[in-house]
Simulated scan of single mutants.
Amino acid sequence: MTAPHDRLPAPAFEPAFDVSVDLGALEDHGDTSIGHRRVVPILGGRITGAVEAEILPGGADWQRVRADGTIEIDGRYSARTTSGDLLLLHATGLRTGSPEVLERLGRAEDVDPHSYYFRTTVQIETAAPALAHLQRSLFIAVAQRQANAVHYRAHRVA
């Protein structure tokens, strides 16, 4: 006899959009009441794929650094589509790896994205009726950190 959960559909992943985020200089706030806090300003960037948009300056990634070097990602930023609609994006996740790889990333070296784990979920808000479907989907992204940018590909969980 099969259990009811055995009949549930398995999730699938559909490529949705690519994001390139231009980053400002890291602000290290040190050990705060909730842990080691860093803020990375978002200067701009681009979204391509299911939605085409320009990332607007003014967002940031409010990071918390764990004792083992793992970084908790909490990025929030706005974008304007080519038709003028506004989007709010919220990316949360983790970036971690061996101490050696994390040290190289900390020095802004170009590191093979296969050598560390950088995954986020992405939620989108918008008032644009034509883009409302983006608010009714879950997106999982695989990311790469470079010296002054983050690149990620978001997949819609089907």
Rank of each mutant, 00 (worst) to 15 (best):
I34V: 15
G49I: 05
A10R: 15
S98C: 07
T82Q: 13
P15C: 00
E72W: 12
A141Y: 05
M1V: 13
E54R: 15
R136M: 05
I140K: 00
D22K: 14
G69I: 06
G97H: 08
P41C: 07
R136D: 08
D110V: 03
F13Q: 07
G30H: 06
P57M: 12
Y117C: 02
A143Y: 01
A141S: 12
G44W: 01
S33Q: 15
S20F: 10
H114C: 08
T81W: 02
M1P: 07
A132S: 15
R104H: 04
A50V: 05
F139L: 05
V101R: 07
A60L: 08
T96W: 11
S33L: 15
E27I: 15
G75H: 00
R119N: 10
Y116S: 00
E14M: 10
L87E: 12
L56N: 07
A130R: 14
V157S: 01
L134F: 06
I42W: 04
P11C: 00
T92N: 02
R37A: 09
E54N: 14
S78W: 11
Y116H: 11
Q63D: 03
A10N: 14
R156F: 00
D6G: 11
L105R: 05
S115D: 08
P129I: 05
A12P: 00
S78F: 14
R37Q: 07
G30D: 02
I55N: 07
V19P: 00
Q135T: 14
V122A: 01
A143G: 11
L87N: 09
R80P: 01
Q123W: 12
G69H: 02
T2V: 14
A50T: 10
T96V: 08
T48K: 05
D68A: 06
I140Y: 00
D18Y: 08
D74Q: 04
P99R: 04
A25T: 15
D22F: 10
G58N: 08
T81P: 01
T126E: 02
I34Y: 13
D68T: 08
I124D: 07
F17A: 01
T70C: 02
T120V: 07
D112A: 05
R38Q: 15
T32A: 12
S33E: 15
G45S: 01
A132W: 14
A12C: 02
V122H: 03
T120Q: 03
T32M: 10
A149D: 14
G69A: 07
E52T: 14
G30C: 08
Q123V: 13
R119F: 11
D112C: 00
E103T: 12
G59A: 00
E14Q: 14
L87R: 12
R64Q: 03
T121H: 11
R76D: 00
E52D: 13
D18A: 13
S137P: 04
Y77S: 02
R145H: 06
G24Y: 03
L138R: 12
D6Y: 13
S98M: 04
D61I: 06
P113Y: 08
L56V: 05
A67W: 09
D61L: 02
T82N: 12
V157G: 00
I140S: 01
R156K: 03
S20N: 12
M1E: 10
P41A: 08
T82R: 13
L56E: 11
I140R: 01
G59V: 00
Y116E: 07
T126Y: 06
A16E: 01
E72D: 12
A127D: 08
V65H: 10
T2R: 15
L105T: 04
T2N: 14
E52I: 09
D68W: 04
Q123C: 09
